[in-house]
Amino acid sequence: MSAGSRRAFVLALGVWPFGVVYGVAVSSAGLGTWPGVLGSVAIFAGASQLSLVELHDQGAFWLVAVGTALVVNARFLLYSAALAPSFSEFPTGFRYLGAHLMTDQAVALSLLEYETEDDPLRRRGFYLGAALTLFVMWQFGTLVGLLAGGSIPDGLQLGFIIPLMFTALVVPSLRDRPALTAASVSVVVALGTSFLPVGTNILLGAVAGMLAGGLASGGGPSGGGDIGSEGVSS
């Protein structure tokens, strides 16, 4: 478990200010401390929590507000599929509780780790360590934002942490043709379909990227393509 939390710790430091941003958004919309905390514990997915606060604040119909949050989170369906092979070796209780702790960061770190770690017990420990570290930091950031209540200086540009965090996670994985194909197609499709409702373009980009990457890997015998890989340092 400690390996996972160690690897997730720096990412969790990046998650913290994002949690503060959410807490401030809830408190400046006057939605109350407890509903804000409930959002972070029960939804536990930053981008969708922010979109829910924004749409509720703008007086959107509840179906639109909730529906948008779910479209933003639709990528979890893909993560669920990606984790399913390793999770099928975990105990039932862990599968159902562990699923709730799923985040972009925990999934990316775990899948990277699982390339070289085959032991189910250590795989489980790694996921739990990474996921819990991120969970705790997110709650902490949320609370600070809710209680501070004021506004965050724009000059800090905390929004920039989001693309940075995901860049740090994805760049080390871009080391073969299928991965590079998936990433490029995903970017082009996500930007090209940005006129669609929020979140939809990301889902379309991801699916198109997976299909393109799958085609690119179909030809060679290496498949996932570890040939030429330099390995990943922690």
Partner: peptide, 8 residues
């Protein structure tokens, strides 16, 4: 390929 397709 899910992470390299979703994150970018």
């Amino acid at each position: 390929l899910v992470p390299v397709a979703v994150l970018p």
